[in-house]
Amino acid sequence: MSERTIMLACSAGMSTSLLVSKMLAAAKEKGKDYKIFATSTADIDHQLEFTKPDILLLGPQVAYMKDEIKKKTDKAGIPMDVINMTDYGMMNGAKVLTTAEEILNGRA
């Protein structure tokens, strides 16, 4: 069983899945066992209900949906944030992972 589940979402889940592989590599280096996956914004409801992630990170290109999606994550009782544009562009998996951990630990 993974320690934490991190869900990433963008328009189709395509470009965020690039970042997922970088984040998984970063997690492995740290010796952490996270479940990290990417999905499309349309699929968020379904995933919140069935996969029950611990945190949702939004790709910056769909940041305009933040308010709408925040309602859903609030309802599910999990934190969410928009990924920093530069980290996203540079596919900086380690940095995004650290941000996710900070948010998760801040809550826990």
């Binding site: 470009s15 290109q61 562009g89």
Partner: peptide, 26 residues
């Protein structure tokens, strides 16, 4: 240079978020 390496394969599949946010183009 480093972004070119990140973007090469995604570009073949018509994905270019690394450029949009990394170069950036935004």
């Amino acid at each position: 240079k480093s972004l070119g390496k990140i973007e090469l394969v995604p570009a073949l599949f018509n994905i270019n978020e690394p450029f949009l946010f990394g170069l950036p183009l935004v």
